[in-house]
């Protein structure tokens, strides 16, 4: 693990990579969005764990995205994700529509080093019909029949998220947001921004150690106060709904989106 700064961290992301991003409320590293756009590595295959929002919409709007694997994309109370919806309509991004537990299952398979995880549900949906990577088999442990869906391992090249704190050894405190650990276990490279960096090791205290993603899985950490803004961060600050509404309005057109992004503070 290296202590880094945002622009240096963005250099880990290269064109054509598969990038995992967390759900709105789990710790989105919005601080990394502009450095990623500035870096300009395109043709990204995004994996939303398990849904996407503002960051996904901005990366799509910036033209960096090739496919989006997700269970949903929206701006929550601020409505639909404008650049994502426009890209769907124009057919400029490829969709891999999923359902939340299927994305968790794919990460779980990768975490275990297994090729797939079987999952209930899904049979008879159009999600399954449009996914050529998901397979249906008959449960081999049942006497007969019992179809079940196999979800292949999801192995992202990069995972990017934001958390309240890390220590100077690269251990990151994720509390009970265990999906962040699942993403990290499954990924080759893990980039984390944090509100603060502690001197003392988080592993020295059993109470904090239980909520730690160990440095073993962390590639780089950067200090980024309010790094989830305008999203909130659990236990730290709440979502700036007014700002998200402002974005939603601005990004209705490609020009409005470009103007909005241009007036954001560079990292």
């Amino acid at each position: 693990m290296v202590l880094s700064e945002l622009r240096a961290m963005a250099k880990h992301v290269e064109a054509g990579m598969r990038v995992a991003l967390p759900v709105d409320y789990a710790g989105v590293s919005m601080a990394m969005t502009l450095p990623l756009i500035e870096r300009g590595a395109g043709n990204l295959d995004l994996v939303c764990v398990p849904t996407g929002g503002l960051q996904v919409d901005q990366l799509v709007g910036a033209g960096l995205v090739r496919t989006v694997e997700t269970s949903a994309v929206s701006l929550g109370e601020a409505g639909g994700a404008p650049r994502f919806n426009a890209a769907v309509k124009e057919g400029t991004i490829k969709l891999r529509d999923a359902t939340c537990p299927a994305i968790h299952a794919g990460l779980m398979a990768a975490q275990k080093g297994s090729p797939f995880v079987p999952m209930r549900g899904l049979i008879g949906t159009d999600l399954l019909r449009h996914r050529d990577d998901w397979r249906v088999i008959d449960n081999p442990l049942a006497d007969k029949g019992d179809p079940i869906v196999l979800i292949p391992a999801i192995k992202p090249d990069v995972t990017i998220f934001h958390a309240p704190m890390a220590d100077r050894f690269g251990n990151v405190w994720i509390g009970r947001r265990r999906e962040l650990a699942a993403m990290a276990y499954a990924s080759i490279t893990v980039l984390v921004t944090v509100e603060r960096i502690l001197e003392e090791s988080l592993l020295n205290n059993e109470m904090s150690a239980a909520g730690v993603l160990p440095a073993l899985y962390v590639t780089a950490v950067a200090h980024a106060p309010k790094g989830a803004w305008p999203y909130g961060l659990w236990g730290e600050y709440s979502t700036d709904t007014v700002e998200i509404l402002r974005y939603a309005k601005a990004a209705r057109t490609a020009e409005g989106f470009a103007d909005y992004m241009a007036q954001m503070e560079p990292a």
Binding site: F84, V88, G91, A102
Partner: peptide, 17 residues
């Protein structure tokens, strides 16, 4: 699908729950 005339957010957990 996939070029929906109106796109809604997505299936969320419905295909399982």
């Amino acid at each position: 699908y996939p070029q929906s005339s109106v796109r809604w957010p997505g299936s969320f957990g419905s295909a399982y729950l």
